[in-house]
């Protein structure tokens, strides 16, 4: 059975005279037990989608079912079975770690002890601070506590809206390790994130941009689908290198990527040596050029451009 099934879903908001299309006729299936990533920048429609799945919003058109239940008709039943973590920090700042967890356990008609097994690994990391007010926790700690609160009633589906935004790399890594171990315990997890580098940690991902899915597949599948040639270039002067590479007619889509810049040749006949020779003629120093495998971010940018043009 599919944990989530979304068909031709649309959602728009009207503020004043403006109407914003947050989701435009999208469809999606998430299998039970999957760790599924919804990847896209701010304003792509991630939050709207998750809120519809969490029964907090109703779509303008189309259908969404969660755990076999309709999000509009059976919203009460769905709310018993899902764990939801909204994008904003959603705990009571003036209550302690323990009081927060206890409160959420009680409103879900359970207790911390009853489902302790599920949250044990996570809770043990924050347990030393259980008397501390939630507002005084660091970003990573807050995230862990919020996750504990979302898990306390042993949901079969976990919906996480940007759990790692504004959190440092270290805490992000820990958070994803936790998600992986939760998945092992049989949970279906849907994560929305703006970080493209988190894509490879999911079983499958949907690339979302301006209310449209650009592609839905496994991370490796998405990369395999876009096997265009990609070059990486670096020298000792990034700014000049960008200008010079762009001024050469043989390549397009020149963008910085970490210490390298990435670009794709116009035609498959173009030799990478020609680029190197051109850059040498521009007096670039310590040039490195190589052909590379694209990453999710390369694909996303490629698809974004294509979508934008069409």
């Amino acid at each position: 059975m599919n944990a989530i099934s979304v068909r031709n879903l649309s959602k728009s908001y009207t503020t004043g005279k403006q109407t914003v299309e947050a989701l435009c006729n999208i469809s999606l299936q998430v299998a039970a037990g999957e760790l599924f990533g919804i990847i896209g920048p701010d304003g792509a429609g991630k939050t709207s989608l998750l809120r519809i799945l969490a029964t907090l919003m109703q779509p303008n058109a189309g259908q969404a079912s969660v755990l076999g239940l309709d999000t509009t008709k059976d919203y009460k039943a769905i709310r018993q079975k899902i764990g939801y973590m909204p994008g904003r920090f959603s705990l009571y700042q003036d209550l302690s770690v323990e009081e927060n967890l206890d409160f959420f356990a009680t409103i879900f008609k359970t207790s911390i002890d009853a489902n302790y097994q599920l949250i044990k690994d996570i809770y043990e990391q924050i347990a030393p601070f259980k008397k501390r007010k939630a507002g005084k926790l660091s970003g990573g700690m807050k995230q862990k506590l919020a996750l504990c609160c979302a898990l306390i009633h042993k949901p079969s589906l976990l919906l996480l809206d940007e759990p790692t935004t504004g959190v440092d790399v270290m805490s992000r890594k820990e958070f994803w390790d936790m998600l992986a171990s939760l998945q092992q315990q049989g949970l279906t997890i849907v994560v929305a994130t703006p970080y493209m580098d988190e894509a490879s940690l999911c079983d499958r991902i949907a690339l979302l941009d301006r209310g449209n899915f650009l592609e839905i597949d496994t991370p490796s599948g998405i990369i395999a689908n876009h096997q265009s040639t990609l070059w990486a270039v670096k020298s000792d002067n990034m700014y000049q290198l960008l200008q010079d590479t762009r001024s050469w007619s043989g390549v397009t889509n020149v963008f910085p990527f970490g210490e390298y810049l990435h670009c794709s040749p116009h035609s498959s006949n173009t030799d990478i040596k020609e680029l190197e020779a051109y850059l040498l003629s521009k007096k670039q120093q310590q040039i490195v050029v190589k052909q590379i495998e694209p990453q999710i971010e390369d694909v996303f940018m490629h698809l974004m451009n294509k979508h934008h043009v069409s």
Binding site: R51, A54, I82, P86, S90, I107, A150
Partner: peptide
């Protein structure tokens, strides 16, 4: 404002 209402609404409360 703090987003806790979202969690409360998404709960069976």
């Amino acid at each position: 404002e703090t987003g806790t209402m979202e969690v409360l609404l998404a709960s069976p409360l």
